[in-house]
Amino acid sequence: MENILEIKNLSKSYGNFKLDNIGFNIEKGYIMGFIGPNGAGKTTTIKLIMNLIKRNSGEIKVFGLDNINHEKEIKSRIGFVYDESNYYENLSVKDNAKLIADFYEKWSWTEFDRYINIFGLDKKQKIKELSKGMKTKFSLATALSHEAELLLMDEPTSGLDPVSRQEIINILQEYIEDGNKSVLFSTHIISDIEKMADYVTFINKGKIVFSEEKLKIEDEYRIVKGGLDILESISEEDFIQIKRNKYGFSGLTKDYHKFQNIYGSNIVVDKPNIEEIMLYMVGEKYE
C-alpha cells in the first residue's frame, strides 16, 4: 500500500519545546487521528508538513515527494483546515473563497457550492458574522473543493457543538470512501476519533508514543483493576501507569495475560478505549 504521508526522524526546536525525532506514515485511503495533550507537538508537526516553519532535521514526504522540493505541487493537492480562522473578517464567504480559488488549478465552484449548501452557509455573509463552527465548515468547504488527496486538519472540532462535529465526521468518512484519499485529523477531543479513525498516532511532549492501527492498540492494552492487597504483590514495572484510590487500584498494561493467569477472578481486566489509554499515559510516570 502506498503511503500518502511519510515522516522520518523529524526534529524541530523552539525555545523550550522540542519535537524529537518523530516519525509516522499514513497509507492511502485511511483516517489517522493525531492525538496528544495541548502543547504536545501536533500543530508543530502539521506546520512542518506545510513548511510554514522550518525543520531542523529529518524528512517529510507527501505523495512520495519531498515537501520542500515539491512544495507547490504538494500544496495544490492538500486541503487544510486550521484551528484559527485566518480569513478576511470583513469580506464575505464568497469573496474569501474567490481569493483562495484562484490558486488551485482543480478548483470547482460546483463542489464548493455543494458543500456550502450541505453546511447551510450563506455565501454573502461576512466571515466575522459566522460562529466558530461555521468558520470551520467554510474552511472545510474550501479544502474539499479542489480535489485534494490529503486533508490536514488541526483541531477542526474544538469549540464545536456535537451536531456540527458529527456532520464533519460524516463528511470525512465519505471523503475517504474511494480509497484514494487520506485524512490527518489532529485533536484533543478523542471521542471524535474513537469511531472513525483507522489509525491513531499519539504524541506527547514532542515524542511519538505510538502510531498504529486503532484496533491493534485496543487489542494490546488492558486496564487491570483489583484490590489494594493485590497491588502489594505486583511489580509496578509491568504497568505503564497505576492509579490508586481508597478501595483499589487500576493500571494500564500490555502484559495482562500474566495477571489474568495469576489472579484469575480477583481482578478485572477491561479493554480501554483510546481516551483512557491516553489519560493513563499522560500521567507522571510516563516519560
Binding site: 506545510m50 513548511n51 510554514l52 512544495e71 507547490k72 505541487e73 500544496k75 495544490s76 492538500i78 487544510f80 486550521y82 484559527e84 485566518n86 480569513y87 478576511y88 473578517e89 483562495i100 490558486f103 488551485y104
Partner: peptide, 18 residues
C-alpha cells in the same frame, strides 16, 4: 495590515505558491 491582522500569512503560505 489585513494580512497581519488576520494572520492571513498562514493561509497564503499554505496555498500552492512559493
Amino acid at each position: 495590515q489585513y494580512e497581519e491582522l488576520y494572520n492571513y500569512d498562514c493561509i497564503l503560505n499554505s496555498l500552492p505558491i512559493s
